[in-house]
């Protein structure tokens, strides 16, 4: 008898926790759907294939940054440098193209530059024992300064059509030539950035849940000292997370600059906050140990759709900031309710 009551009690307690996480994800998803329905009712143009693709395109940059940010936040850290690293990487890619490299290796250079910035963050945090907030704040200034210095604060343009393919191209694009000689777009296609985002998101989720390094990332954020005593190489794990975040910032930078076919050294200011907001709305906890890629994707789309929908409804950019700020606070508030005993 006592055994039966005991096991049923522990069963209940155990059932609540994953249920809570599930509910958070579900509430984020519901918010997303509500936003879509709301904006669709308020604006005719919102609910169209073209606008859907625009949202995909706009969200892919925040999404890519958000995936790296999620890894870092799960370790219990933060990466404030991604916006600046994005700009530096894009500039590096553009300079490599200007130096005569073909587009693909040039973009590889940009991603590598991002990874190097991330690795620098990781080394400063683990070797010099500087808190992540300060270390990545430093990198935010360093990367921005570098990007502005090596370009002389002048945008690099004239990069050629090939540079624009990643950001502007699309898969399954169908164009029909009409008899009058003008093309007619039947289906605009799935933009490459969206496909890239999908691939990176799946790879990120796989890394986090199926690989040892992912488990160590969660363990490190959950209890760093315990992980160290259990044989997890905590410093290496953190280095890995920050390097991924830097590399994905580099990738996002290439996508963005490719879309503009111009490398803007002043691009990406405050993007880190969007990425953090996406992760937090998606249920990542800034105290570490909690967070999912799928949640962050939902968060990124909530921000993307909010921006797009408010734009379509003619709401000013200033009001948009207020709304997104409130959404972030609301999301964390829901998270607090979930964790309240």
């Amino acid at each position: 008898m006592s055994d039966a009551t005991k096991s049923s009690k522990t069963f209940d307690v155990g059932d609540l926790i994953p249920g809570g996480a599930y509910i958070h994800r579900l509430s984020a998803l519901m918010t997303l759907l509500l936003l879509v329905v709301g904006f669709a009712l308020s604006s005719q143009a919102f609910f169209s294939i073209n606008n859907g693709l625009t949202i995909l395109l706009q969200t892919s940059v925040i999404g890519l940054l958000g995936i790296g940010m999620t890894m870092v936040i799960i370790t219990g850290g933060i990466d404030l440098s991604v916006g600046s690293v994005l700009a530096l990487s894009g500039v590096v890619s553009a300079l490599a193209v200007k130096a005569g490299l073909p587009v693909v290796p040039a973009m590889g250079c940009g991603v590598l530059a991002g990874a190097a910035c991330g690795a620098f963050n990781g080394l400063v945090i683990t070797r010099l024992r500087i808190p992540p907030f300060v270390a990545t704040l430093g990198m935010m200034l360093i990367a921005r300064g570098l990007a502005l210095q090596i370009t002389g604060a002048v945008p690099i343009s004239g990069l050629g059509n090939a540079f624009g393919i990643l950001g502007n191209g699309a898969l399954f694009r169908m164009v029909e030539m009409r008899p009058n000689g003008f093309p007619k777009v039947i289906f605009p296609g799935i933009p490459y950035p969206a496909i890239l985002l999908l691939i990176v998101a799946i790879a990120g989720a796989y890394l986090l849940h199926r690989r040892q390094i992912g488990r160590h990332i969660i363990a490190t954020g959950s209890n760093e000292e315990a992980s160290r005593l259990s044989g997890v190489r905590v410093d290496r794990t953190k280095l890995y997370a920050y390097t991924i975040s830097g590399a994905l910032a580099g990738l996002a930078g290439n996508v963005l600059m490719s879309r503009l076919v111009t490398a803007q050294p002043s691009e990406g200011v405050m993007y880190e906050l969007d990425a953090i907001a996406a992760a937090v709305i998606g249920g990542a906890s800034l105290s570490g140990g909690v967070g999912t890629i799928s949640g962050t994707m939902i968060g990124a789309f909530i921000i993307g759709i909010l921006r797009n929908g408010l734009n379509m409804s003619g709401v000013s950019a200033f009001i948009q900031q207020i709304v997104i700020g409130l959404v972030v606070i609301g999301a964390v508030w829901i998270d607090q309710i979930r964790n309240r005993p």
Binding site: R215, I218, A219, G221, S222, N223, E225, A226, S227, L229, S230, G289, V290
Partner: peptide
């Protein structure tokens, strides 16, 4: 003594 467990796992 602290058990050294990662609470979220």
């Amino acid at each position: 003594q602290t058990l050294a467990l990662a609470d979220h796992l």
